[in-house]
Amino acid sequence: MDSEKHTSERNALEANEISAGYGEAQVLRDLSFELQEGEILSIVGPNGAGKTTLMRVLMGLIGPTNGSVRLYGDQITDLPAHERLGHGLALVSEERNLFREMSVKENLVMGSYSERGKNRGERLERVFDLFPRLEERQDQHAGTLSGGEAQMLAIGRSLMTDIRILMLDEPSLGLAPKLVPELFDKIREINDDGISIVLVEQRAQEALQLADSGCLLENGAIVHRGAAAEMLDDEDVIEKYLGGA
């Protein structure tokens, strides 16, 4: 770890030999990785590699058929999704799962549900600082937001409680390309506040440039892992996954 940023050696999140799928179809096979506290880990790979399934398993929305998930060393494999947030783990899903019929403000207020509004004003201010656009649109229905604004709201909602790990599933999906660097800057900012990040992306190059370490996911298994900077220099990785750039 030669990054100038301080990342401790403690594992924030750990997946051990996870297998999972839907019915007969097995999507993940013996998948393992660790997220170190304070780092940004990018999980990149082609469409259909199992990235979204992995996120669902980690959040507890579906159960693995095998393997275990640990959060700061604690076994959480059987913990239901709604209790994982209380342990500091949050997911911004690919679909975003906003409350479309509710206002932007109500969505954010609901973000503080698990702590019943503890420090709500303070956190709301922090979210509005990070995404001033949301403050302008706070009375609008979430269903009327643009793709970029909806993504800001989904991230903002997850920051309304005291989280330690934020998992982002394809946050750049549906965003105008010129908005992507701005979004990645925000992710960096959130990380600078001490929140460890798991970033799942199809935009492999940009995601690895932002990250401390990376994993390549292919056909439900991790085929390569290492420091993000090294992966960006690895001829083999570049050729196979980064479009030979």
Binding site: A81, L85, A90, E95, N97, T161
Partner: peptide, 24 residues
């Protein structure tokens, strides 16, 4: 109220509610 908002949230997007800690 949080409980009332949670009802609307579950009605709107159950998954989303689950992810922010609502025991649906």
């Amino acid at each position: 109220t949080y409980m009332g908002l949670a009802m609307r949230a579950v009605a709107d997007d159950r998954r989303g509610a689950e992810m922010i800690g609502v025991n649906y």
